[in-house]
Simulated assay, not measured.
Amino acid sequence: MRIEAVNVSMPSQEKDNKQIIDLIRQHSRDTFNGDLEQTLTRVNKLLNLSGAKSRRWLAAGEKPFDHIQKAVFATLTEAEVDKDEIDLLIYVGIGKGFLEPGQSYLVAHALSMGQVECFDLVDACMSWSRAMHIAEGFFLTKRYQRILIVNAEFGSIDGGYLFPHNYQLHNPQQLEWTFASYTIGNAATATLVSADPNNPWTWRFSSRPDLADLCSIHFFQLGLYSKENDRIGRNGALHFTSFGQELHTHALEPCVSLIREIYDLQPDIKCIFPHASSYREWDKFARKAGVQDKIHHIYPMYGNLVSASVPAGLALAWHNGLVNRGDRVAGWVGSAGMSFAGYSFTL
């Protein structure tokens, strides 16, 4: 499988850590029980420890679809492919505006993509990686020749699963399952892949469903579609709950094991693109795996881009000349679920 082109489009408004702190203060001053300033000092310390400096939010007048359109058109232009030459459009990730029909159909319709086949795939921050794995399998069946994979992770949109709800703190303890909200950035990506039997990808996955309660966004009353669990949905229906530190603690061993296996098989890997959930944690993972010099971090400047992390990192590196056609690179992801992946491919 060959990546013909990949592009990222991010909103224009930068939010630094101070601005995030100010927003938490604004939305929590009437609800917080305790010393708010002390808690905000802790949030600031945790953001700095994670390596966060800024992230992008939508400015007035910007919409997620503007960035979907920009990323898709840039990718098709770069690949010199007409939109009618796309056989399948897969929309991936958490950020979307529709439960029915699939967001993929709305994207295809808005872009006048005619008769393109469509479906959505949701696997938290693993979504793009899962879609790429599935795409390669489709190519082996020779059903499709070109597949476009699109996502638009805009969790910080007003009224979304993060803001302003998770910026309204009630007590210091809430940070345990809410802090990760303040690391989230926003981006849309578009990745065009085509069949190439001479360029197989190497994949390794593992899962820990017993840790599914560590990160969640639920729709309905708890217990209807799962067992009762007081860790799921702590911030309420349709809002992000994430025990971020526990997620990283449990991700360490499986993630290190997977990337070591990939790197042992293909030591010519030039660059590794991790899920951008924390600079500090992925740097620790990389040091333990012995691949610290290979990691390309985007978290400090752009935050956690959810399922867009790997394609955004790849697009930024590729367009800045840090990697080139013919280089072997790798993706490295730990995700809610929990699931873990390491994989490598040649550009």
Rank of each mutant, 00 (worst) to 15 (best):
I262G: 07
G331Q: 12
L314W: 09
R287I: 04
E253I: 14
V329P: 00
S307D: 01
H250C: 01
V323D: 10
I298K: 05
V333Y: 05
L316F: 03
F240W: 11
V323T: 15
E253C: 06
N320S: 14
S339V: 09
S339M: 04
L316R: 04
A237I: 10
F340V: 04
C255A: 15
T241V: 02
G331N: 09
P267N: 09
S242I: 00
A289Q: 01
T249W: 08
L247Y: 08
N324G: 09
T249N: 10
N320A: 12
D293H: 12
H250Q: 14
S344I: 05
A276R: 00
L247R: 03
G321W: 13
K270H: 14
A286F: 01
E261S: 10
R287Y: 09
A251W: 03
R325H: 15
R328G: 02
R328I: 01
L322T: 10
A341P: 00
P274I: 07
G313Y: 06
M301Y: 11
P300M: 09
T249R: 14
Y299E: 06
G236Y: 07
A341I: 06
P311I: 11
A286N: 02
L252I: 05
I295S: 03
A237Q: 15
D264A: 06
L316P: 00
A286Q: 01
D283T: 03
Q266C: 07
G290R: 01
V329C: 08
H239E: 00
F243I: 06
A276K: 00
V323C: 15
P300K: 08
S242H: 11
G303L: 08
M301R: 14
R280N: 10
Y343R: 03
P311M: 12
V310C: 11
S339C: 08
G236L: 06
A315S: 12
H239Y: 05
A308W: 04
N324Q: 13
N229H: 15
A330G: 06
H319F: 10
I269L: 11
A336G: 15
E246I: 02
D327I: 04
N235A: 12
S307M: 00
Q245M: 13
A276S: 09
L314P: 02
K294H: 13
V333M: 08
N304D: 07
I259W: 02
W332I: 08
E261G: 05
M338A: 13
G334A: 15
K284F: 06
L238M: 13
M301C: 11
Q292R: 05
N304F: 07
A341R: 07
A315M: 04
V333G: 01
W282D: 00
K284R: 01
D268L: 05
F243A: 08
W282G: 00
S278W: 06
V333D: 02
A315N: 04
Y279I: 00
W282C: 00
F273T: 10
V310W: 05
V310E: 05
Q266G: 03
L314V: 12
D283M: 09
C255R: 02
